[in-house]
Each structure stands twice: as C-alpha cells, then as structure tokens.
Amino acid sequence: MARSKLSFIIISLALALTSVPASAEQTLSERLGDILQERADSHLGADFAYRKLELITLLGELRAEDIRLTTRVEALDEGLNQVLRADQVLVKGEWLTPQKNSLAVDSVVARDAQLTVAYYGKGQSNLHALYEAAMRQQVLQRASNSIMWQIKQSRLENVVLNLFDQGQPILSVRLALLKLPPAHADDTADTYIAKLLWPVLEQVLEQAMAGNSDAVVDYSRLTQFIWREIR
C-alpha cells in the first residue's frame, strides 16, 4: 500500500536528519518529532502523531510508540483518512550520514498495527494521495539535488488490514506478517499499490475458499472493486 505510508514518513525522516539543527531548548529526538510533523503537513498534506519518539544515534535507530498517520482527503471521512496506526515502530539504517545526497534504511518494522486502504474512485485512495504527494516532493528535490535513497526491508507484524471502497467495507483481515515490497523511484502509485494489494487479496481469497480464513469479506463488493481497478 504504496511506498507504504510508513516508508513515506521514513524517507522524510531520513532527509530531515541530515540537517537537524542543534538546540539548547530541545533534544534531538524532540526536534526530530517536530520536523516529522511539519513535513507530513507541508510535504504530504497529512498529519503525523506519536506518543513517544526516541532517536538513538549510536545505533542508527529510531524508536517510536503509538504513531498515527492520517491523510486529508476530502472525499473520505475522518476514520478512513487514518491510513496507519501502530503501537511500535523501529527503524534501523545508515541514514544519519552527513552526505545529504545519500541515505539507506536497512529495515522498518511496525508492530501491532492497523492499515486502512480506502478507495473513493478508480485509482484514487488515501494511499494514492500519500504516494503522489511524496513523488511531487521527490521531483522538486531532484531538480535541485539528486538524492540516492533506498529502503531495503519493511514489514508490519500483527497487522489488521482493512479495505474500503466508496465508504463501504470490503475486507478486514488480521495478518501475522505483512511484508512490503521494495520501493523504486520509477514506480507509480498504481504499480506500487498493485505489488502489495493484489498478492494480499489473492492470499485472503485462497484461504477463504479453503475454509481456513478469519477474514471478513464482502465478495460482491470485492468483485466489483477488482473488476473496476484492473480495467
């Protein structure tokens, strides 16, 4: 589900960390938290909230608790705009490098999470909104300075995946592990979301047909949704 909202935040985080100013009034962790919220607002048109955020520079780690990422799509109600919530997030990598044109995130892990994908039209969802905003920022940054970045691994552990279309629930399933595909700069929102969403739907449908799925599925709406999106 798109560069994963999680990945969007991490990319912004990594870029921000290359120029976090020292402050006598704030710790680096506190300043970073402010920057993440500012960038979610200005770069992604979204709201990023957290209860606790700790930057461990010696280990190259970021640890956060009780995070929320919420879009502002007018066609969606408030609940469907909340694309991600997670009790814990751990980020590891070499993204504290002083080289401003290079960064690498080794892994992003979110635990006890809920991921909500809400469509309101063909090729239009909360995830598309995030992805396209992130791509616009990347184009602007490339215009002034080419930035080489990569996110090697991303996964959600004990995650509830919800799929909505035009305000109506289509699917809700709890997954022990959801691995997110690698992100590439030349992906579009549609191609990246397809890499993640369609394999999950296929897996859920196979389990349901075998009678061993705990997913709640509206098969009629799911069929209509798939038919519309693949045409």
Results as ranks from 00 to 15, higher is better:
54 E>S: 12
92 K>P: 07
67 I>Y: 05
61 E>H: 06
68 R>K: 12
104 A>R: 15
54 E>A: 12
59 L>H: 05
101 N>M: 05
113 A>Y: 00
41 D>Q: 09
58 L>A: 15
73 V>M: 01
48 F>M: 05
50 Y>Q: 02
46 A>L: 03
63 R>I: 05
96 L>W: 03
119 Y>R: 03
112 D>K: 14
60 G>S: 13
61 E>W: 02
102 S>Q: 13
81 N>I: 06
103 L>K: 09
96 L>F: 09
121 G>D: 13
86 A>D: 00
88 Q>K: 14
96 L>Q: 07
80 L>A: 03
124 Q>F: 10
116 T>F: 02
100 K>D: 08
59 L>Y: 00
128 H>I: 06
73 V>F: 03
56 I>R: 08
106 D>N: 12
76 L>Q: 03
55 L>Q: 01
98 P>W: 06
104 A>L: 13
61 E>K: 10
110 A>E: 01
97 T>M: 14
86 A>S: 07
58 L>V: 15
100 K>L: 11
61 E>S: 10
81 N>Y: 09
107 S>F: 05
62 L>W: 00
112 D>W: 07
104 A>N: 09
48 F>Q: 03
110 A>F: 00
74 E>T: 08
78 E>F: 09
114 Q>T: 06
124 Q>T: 11
116 T>D: 07
86 A>W: 02
122 K>A: 02
93 G>K: 04
124 Q>R: 15
121 G>Y: 01
62 L>K: 04
45 G>C: 06
84 L>K: 05
122 K>F: 08
115 L>P: 00
112 D>G: 13
59 L>M: 06
94 E>M: 15
46 A>H: 01
41 D>A: 14
106 D>I: 12
82 Q>D: 07
95 W>Y: 14
122 K>P: 01
70 T>Y: 04
111 R>S: 15
128 H>V: 08
93 G>A: 12
79 G>E: 12
100 K>A: 14
73 V>E: 00
88 Q>E: 12
95 W>C: 11
58 L>N: 11
116 T>C: 08
62 L>M: 08
43 H>N: 12
127 L>Y: 05
114 Q>F: 04
126 N>W: 01
86 A>Y: 02
78 E>P: 02
97 T>V: 15
114 Q>R: 12
118 A>N: 03
126 N>P: 01
55 L>N: 02
89 V>L: 09
59 L>D: 11
112 D>T: 07
99 Q>N: 13
64 A>T: 02
55 L>D: 02
41 D>W: 06
120 Y>Q: 06
97 T>G: 06
114 Q>M: 14
64 A>S: 06
58 L>Y: 09
118 A>W: 04
94 E>F: 14
41 D>T: 14
113 A>K: 04
56 I>A: 06
84 L>N: 04
113 A>G: 11
91 V>W: 02
71 T>R: 13
60 G>I: 13
119 Y>H: 03
49 A>G: 08
118 A>T: 02
94 E>V: 15
93 G>H: 06
85 R>K: 11
66 D>H: 12
47 D>F: 13
119 Y>Q: 01
76 L>M: 11
80 L>M: 05
86 A>T: 01
74 E>M: 10
